[in-house]
Amino acid sequence: MLSRYEFLDLFDGLAGLPYGGEAVDQRTHALQTAAHAVAAGADDELVLAAAFHDVGRARPVAERHRGLPHEQAGAAFARDHLTERSAWAIEQHVAAKRYLVAVDPAYHDTLSPVSVRSLRVQGGPMTPEEAAAFKAHPWSADAVSLRLWDDAAKDPEGPVLTVDELLATYERVLRG
């Protein structure tokens, strides 16, 4: 379990960290994604996945997991500090974008220019076989929801969850 200090330090370390050309920094993006999850009625595990989905870009996590894509580094972090379900959703949020582009042609038009560019690097749309395998996973809907909250969390004026609210969520999940 992360201590309160470690938790706050991790999120404070995201403040000012660029988010690939988007209009928000990594901290705002994380807290907005979590706010969208709460607004959608997500359970605590998914709220944490939403908040931590890009934690693989945080300096201490990226340094510990050098060479891994951010979603894999984030999933490794989540397996150590969150739940397996949260870790899986974090690991699959990039795949969920590829899935959505493959199964919903209109989805592509909702992506930001930065997200469209990263889609190319991430492998583009899934093949029909990849999409079927992704959809067959029991937590695929979690990853898709996370992806949609991620896409919506790029507004400098958008809602954010407070770090204290997020910390309370983290403590509830760890208490079981």
Rank of each mutant, 00 (worst) to 15 (best):
T83Y: 06
V47Y: 01
A35S: 12
E84G: 14
G56W: 02
V24R: 02
A34W: 10
A49D: 01
R27H: 10
H93E: 03
D44L: 06
A34K: 02
L14A: 10
A40S: 13
G41S: 11
R59G: 10
Q26P: 02
D25L: 08
P60M: 06
E63Y: 11
P69H: 12
A50M: 05
H65Y: 15
S86K: 01
L31R: 00
L48I: 11
D43Q: 12
V38E: 13
A37S: 06
G20H: 15
V55Q: 01
R57P: 00
A76E: 15
F52V: 03
A62S: 12
A37M: 04
L68S: 12
A87R: 10
A75K: 06
A51M: 02
A39I: 04
E63C: 13
T83W: 06
G74F: 08
A37R: 04
H93Y: 14
A87Q: 06
A49H: 05
A51W: 02
V24F: 05
G67Q: 09
G21W: 00
P18W: 00
W88Q: 11
E45N: 06
Y19E: 08
A35F: 09
E45A: 11
H36S: 11
R59E: 15
V61K: 03
A78Q: 04
Q26R: 07
D25H: 09
W88G: 01
A75L: 09
F11C: 08
L31S: 04
P69T: 14
E63F: 13
R85A: 09
D12T: 14
R85F: 10
E91W: 14
E91V: 14
L31Q: 05
Q92L: 13
H70D: 00
A30L: 00
I90P: 00
A34I: 13
L10W: 03
V47S: 03
D25R: 11
P69Q: 12
L68Y: 14
R85E: 03
V61S: 05
Q26W: 10
R66T: 15
T28Y: 14
A76S: 13
G41V: 14
A39S: 13
R27M: 05
A34G: 09
E91K: 14
A40V: 06
P69K: 13
A30M: 03
L46K: 10
E91C: 12
P60A: 08
D54I: 04
A51H: 01
W88N: 01
G41C: 11
H53G: 04
A42D: 10
A75Q: 11
A76F: 07
A30D: 06
L10V: 08
P69R: 15
S86P: 02
L17I: 15
R57S: 04
V55Y: 10
F77I: 00
S86E: 03
H65V: 06
